[in-house]
Amino acid sequence: MVAGMTELAMGVTLRPQTGEHSAIALSDVRLETRGLDAFFGATRVVKDAALRVYDRQVTAIIGPSGCGKSTLLRCLNRMHETVVGARAEGEVLFSGTDVYSGGMSAVTVRRHIGMVFQRPTPFPTMSIRDNVAAGLKILPRADRPTRSGTDEIVEQALRRAALWEEVKDRLKQGAVMLSGGQQQRLCIARALATQPEVLLLDEPTASLDPTSTMRVEELVYELRADVAVVIVTHNMQQAARVSDRTAFMLAGELVEVGATSAIFTAPTDARTEAYITGRFG
């Protein structure tokens, strides 16, 4: 733990990638895109993307701003289409079923694939507890936990988000009273409460201070024990610190996808190498 923190704080140490680990992961493809295109109006911002997300791994998507990495992420849980004029074409297979045509509603998809945004988004009218329970309240009646069941899930989710100790005495207070970093961990807890199989993080530390960033990164690394994580970041060091696999995106195109260690040490594509070594972006 302590050693891990030091590593994180150093910022550059790469996680060891064992062949064994990869072998397990490869067998569990949780999310896969095939020929995915995303549009804003007539503009194609994601081009023919093919990405695999494995269970018990953190997949990072990196690339210069405006390259379409957030859009790609938002296609995975059908959030892209909530923007006026936006649409996606192609396949996104979630546990083998296409989220776009496999008979799943957007709402169902989003219940199974949680998401956390760049800026913390606690619901301002709700208490800390109610924020975490927000996703449970809207479950179909049969799946909705009881009051005490909810309290249990809330505690569990807050523990997983490493926030429980800080808020356990003030669960009834407003969530907006928390600090920015706490709010972001609250949002992670909120997303975890409904037991999603995948957690999407859209630059989750972009608006946080370095200490809070470190805590969230540490959390992300631990979360992969039971949920597949996809994290979009413009911070290459962050990708190197927290991810098992990294995808590099440029101008809407997935240039290179591979083990993080490989991408950062021996990229095969010249463009990836140029980006990694800081020649652009």
Binding site: T82, V107, R111
Partner: peptide, 9 residues
């Protein structure tokens, strides 16, 4: 967006 992402209709 946060609510939609949480599975709210």
């Amino acid at each position: 967006e946060a609510a939609l992402a949480l599975g709210y209709t």
